[in-house]
Amino acid sequence: MKRAFLGEFEEVVLLTVAVLDESAYGVTITQEIEQKTGRAVGFSTVHTTLQRLEEKGYLSSKMSGATAERGGRRKRFFTVTTAGRKALMEVKNIREQLWDALPPQTLQLMGG
């Protein structure tokens, strides 16, 4: 099977969805990334990334939870699919393998 490619931002978004668990939708995801990474993220970027991840099958979504402050519109809640979890794990494994392969002196130099 061809290894699924996960871009850096995609990985961040996917992880954030996993972190937020039940309450992951456009607004919370944007705010979470903003707070956690400290960088200003455009809503549109998050939105398109979410769409792309859903297309790739890493996310699934359903509509619910309309509130007055949204003008009575529903939210699209996202959850990570099995494929999504696998992809995340895979990225994490690769990272860990790489970290593990790092020579100890280099690690010290980086301040770890």
Partner: peptide, 16 residues
């Protein structure tokens, strides 16, 4: 296809 939630999200974000 995504108009509803986008409109909602943006409203919410705007307030934020």
């Amino acid at each position: 296809n995504t108009l509803e939630e986008v409109q909602g999200d943006l409203l919410e974000l705007y307030a934020y």
